[in-house]
Design a protein around this nucleic acid. Structure first.
Lengths: 169, 169
DNA sequence: TCCAAACCCTTGGATGTCCTAGTATATTGC
DNA sequence: GCAATATACTAGGACATCCAAGGGTTTGGA
């Protein structure tokens, strides 16, 4: 997107909020906006690393999830729940992964409503390679200090729990 | 998307990473994944609040930016830089806002390449109302503690600066 | 037993984001 | 002064996300 700005646009927004008398919510506004922007940056990095593998983040997440499934297969609704995305998003991702022969659909043995998705051999291999690349080029160079990582995991974990993502812990 | 999961899927992923011998990057992976998911939750909240106004977050951000512009108008490329999105995304947002009579395009007085965007009276009014709603229903109830907000602003600010978003500060 | 309610997946539509390319206007350098 | 380069916006296409709605399957209560 281009050249660095001379000043932090989010800090500017925070100052604008304060100037307009919304000082009580200026800081949370800045924090939330920063999260939105950080996600955008991280997503761009991830997509850049995955592109050579012909994967997007959404498809990679599904491959990775399947690669960790004990049985090697998951019902679509289970995948939707674990990835915390809309069922139609999973349908979309599976359509494309299936076309690329990385996963396969199969009927559930006892429940006629359910469709199972399973990694193909190619899918499993590609998942391994893509994970190695992400580990080396993104997660291993996040730019966050160890203490900050711990803090983020804790604070955002609490947030996600309070938002209803999960119960325990 | 539904019922809370019994366990945190991101904590599970972190355990899977450790189990596979990627313990050195498991924590950053979890932190990054948590940022992605938190963004999704926050975006959903924001869109819910904006929906009654007929706005999306992308369009709201543009309205808000214009409402703070001293001159009351901004070149599209300036808006693109400040919002940190691709120029075509701004074109898209302006198209829809213009159709809704919330902003207007006008030619730049001296540079024939440039298009200025300006709030209409309706646009200015709607921006005010939408901001009040977001302040009350999202930013004012972020769920983050004051200390966590400060920490997020600082950590993510450093991250964004290192990522090339801006220079100073 | 049987029908209504619940559940699962897919299709179609609306939005947003990015990339690539194309057109028009400015600026720069020879 | 003019050609080459740079900049600004837009058009078209690929993807992802969500919502609404539809068709098939299961479950549960009358």
């Amino acid at each position: 997107m281009g050249t660095p700005l001379p000043r932090d646009p989010i800090a500017d927004a925070q100052r604008n909020w304060e100037r307009h008398g919304w000082g009580d919510v200026a800081a949370p506004m800045a924090a939330i906006t920063a999260i939105m922007r950080t996600q955008q940056i991280l997503l761009a990095r991830i997509e850049t690393v995955l592109k050579p593998f012909g994967l997007t983040f959404a498809r990679y997440e599904l491959l990775a999830l399947l690669s960790f499934a004990r049985s090697g297969a998951l019902p679509m609704n289970k995948a939707s729940a674990l990835l915390q995305v809309h069922p139609t998003s999973v349908t979309n991702a599976v359509d494309r992964l299936e076309k690329a022969a990385l996963v396969a659909r199969s009927p559930h043995p006892t429940d006629g409503r359910t469709t199972l998705i399973e990694l193909t051999a190619e899918g499993r291999t590609l998942a391994k390679k893509a994970t190695a690349a992400l580990n080396a080029e993104v997660f291993g160079q996040s730019g966050f200090g160890d203490d900050d990582v711990d803090h983020l995991i804790r604070v955002l974990g609490t947030f996600r729990r309070d938002a209803g993502d999960f119960t325990e812990e």
